[in-house]
Amino acid sequence: MTEPAQANPQGRPPILEVRGGRKNFGAVHALRGVDLVARAGEVTALVGDNGAGKSTMIKCIAGIYGFDAGDVLFEGQPVHISDPSEANDMGIEVVYQDLALCDNLDIVHNMFLGRELKKGIQLDEAAMEARAAEVLASLSVRTVRSIRQHVASLSGGQRQTVAIARAVLWNSKLVILDEPTAALGVAQTEQVLQLVRRLADAGLAVVLVSHNMNDVFEVADSINVLYLGQTAAQVRTKDSSRSEVIELITSGSMSPVGAGSGPALSKTTTDSANGSTPA
């Protein structure tokens, strides 16, 4: 299951790479060495049991906490993200589980909230509306009746769509989705997963935090498993099976019967940045 060297066909560094990320909250070691590689055009699933550190990890990447130790490389360049606005400026957008939409505003207003387009001091409604329509159309969103309806009138899947569309409205390169299908029904989950796939196909790097193995195996190219604050492994989806991933989630290591890899915590980041074994 070791990933072949041509896994990175563009020959470019991954959009985001985290090496040995650590985060302590006082005496609590929330992250004790996490590694993550997210490439353009790919969906990277971030899985792990409750308390494994998924939320902490995305908050560190998004600049809400910042890592205490470890390296973060953005497009190959070492960066230090200590503030959410820095992350936004780089092109990192996070769609949180509770969506953060204003029910009393319409879709366009929500998509541009805090970053409104202006003509002088006046809002440029027409430009915002055209741009929002363009983005939704590029995501092949057709389920929304009118772009000017209040977000309150949307279904859970549509709200998720608006939140995701808002994340890609800016020149984002990395979109992190926190459990986007957790509260959705079957049909809407399917819609959102298709949208997630399209985001990656459009060239973005997508990190999908999920509990749901079905979702993960349906859309992810690569699966990063966290176990008790450490990265157990990052594997290619096509080279791994559901039972292997579940074993990684529950035990942090993989029995050698599977694809024949060594003990997980002794550096099993098989889906590494440039395809070769990291130093």
Binding site: A137, V168, L169, A202, G203
Partner: peptide
Amino acid sequence: MSTSTRPADPAAPS
């Protein structure tokens, strides 16, 4: 903006 390079499917106008 990478996503806008994908035109809407003309067969099914949004």
